[in-house]
Simulated scan of single mutants.
Amino acid sequence: MKFLFVSNYINHHQIPLCEAIMRIIGDENFIFVQTQPMEEERVRMGWGVDVSSLTYLKIYDNDKIFTLNAINDFDVVMLGWTENDEVRGACLKRADSGKLLLRMSERIYREGQWKAISPKGLISKYKEHIRFRNKKVYMLCNGAYVASDFALIGAYPNKMFRWGYFPEYREYTKEQMRNMKRMEDNKTPRILWAGRFMDGVKHPEFALELAAYLKEKNYSFHIDVVGDGEMGDDLHYYVDENRLTDVVTFHGFLPPSRVRQMMEEAHIYLFTSNNLEGWGAVVNEAMNAGCAVVAGSMAGAVPYLIKDGENGYIYNAEDLQSFLNKAEDLVRHPSKQQKFGNNAYNTITSLWNSNIAARRLIDFCTAMLKDKEYIVPNDGPMSYAPIIKPYINPEK
């Protein structure tokens, strides 16, 4: 099987999946084509990848002829996000010819499903998605609300599957986990927030509101905040003004490896992004590191990865009080931190990881290429994507 993965650029969240696919079909049968350079902000965040070290990676501008030929000739083409019209056009031409094409997408109406009524938008969606209802084109949904968006326009009926991003996952013994979290002697929960300080998207201010809330109630805790961005000055001012410097530490941007280490040491992870966050790979990473995650219901990864009250907490939309209540409950009950963290770790290592995703993906492709039935799993990657109307409300 010759497998071509086309997307805007490769990053540390995609490499594990690429390598897992290669372990199944052979290194010589897999190519990733990067269609554009990574944004400078993400490079500053430590997302940059030494592309020269990846033997399976090609840069579109350097390998146009190869890429366009491969889009036509390879057995499987998986198309992620790209702004390159030439590449996207070649992929749609492939789909027109009846060849297998996998689309991988985050939400198309993340700003609101009311946008689906736009005549101009519907024409565009017809050309790129709806007209392939009866072709060998399938949608891998990078987020729990993606299927709802596409169902709204009648695209991909019975052809949408749960998918996502699959960053590196690690396996720990129980003893390693206990030592990382210092479970025996640590009475002060370490709470972590990491991301860009993006106004109206990431809500880093929620972490600081939590610090003020918990301090006023005399809880013992410490919050580490990793990241930077447009809200930086306001966030630092809030901490100083509310005398939170003893319970909040700002770290700026750190390399992904250091952030991962901090997740391993943390007991609680706060994920406060709203609907403009397509997936949220930090949720995978924090769960794999054994954190009890408190996450908003609007981001794509959350309903797929977290079962509220079992392996984490989901709070309602952008409801600050809902967030504070659930975070406080974890701080108050260390046993829940441990229970949720253990269950979260098991969710990643037993289901939502690159090895399982790659195996199921290749099984699916093999079945489609041979016109055979694909036995759809009940949950996890490559299970049917349920139509979940935005947004789930864990309070109901």
Rank of each mutant, 00 (worst) to 15 (best):
G227R: 03
K159F: 01
V376S: 04
D185L: 02
R107G: 13
A212K: 13
M263I: 02
A317L: 11
A70E: 09
Y315C: 11
I65L: 15
L244S: 06
R103I: 03
M139W: 00
Y384E: 06
E318C: 09
E373M: 04
K135N: 02
I153H: 04
D149P: 02
P377W: 11
H129N: 03
S350A: 15
E285L: 05
N343W: 01
M177R: 07
P255E: 09
Q176C: 11
E265R: 12
E230V: 13
L244W: 09
P256Q: 06
Y56C: 10
F32N: 09
W47D: 15
G300W: 00
Y109C: 14
M262D: 02
Y384S: 08
P189I: 08
H236P: 03
Y313I: 10
E111W: 09
G26V: 03
E328Y: 07
L4K: 00
F161L: 03
R196D: 07
T55I: 14
Q321K: 07
G89D: 13
D240L: 15
M231G: 05
W163K: 05
I306Y: 00
R107Y: 01
K396C: 11
E395R: 09
W352P: 09
F150Y: 09
S350V: 05
A70D: 12
N275K: 09
A299S: 15
R360A: 08
S335V: 11
A266I: 05
R178E: 10
S97Y: 00
R133M: 10
I356P: 00
P16L: 07
V294M: 13
A357L: 09
I191Y: 01
V293C: 12
D61M: 03
A212R: 08
Q338I: 09
P334R: 01
F253E: 01
S383G: 05
A358H: 13
I21V: 15
V76A: 05
I153M: 11
P256R: 07
V226H: 02
K202M: 06
A299W: 01
V376R: 10
E128H: 06
V33E: 00
E285R: 04
H129P: 00
F166T: 12
I25P: 01
F364H: 08
V248I: 12
F253N: 07
D329H: 10
A301C: 13
A207H: 02
F5Q: 11
D329G: 11
P119E: 06
V77K: 05
I223W: 08
K370S: 14
E171T: 14
I117P: 01
Y145L: 08
L320V: 14
K307F: 06
E175D: 06
M177H: 10
E106I: 13
K120P: 01
K396A: 08
E395W: 01
F250H: 03
W47E: 15
H203E: 03
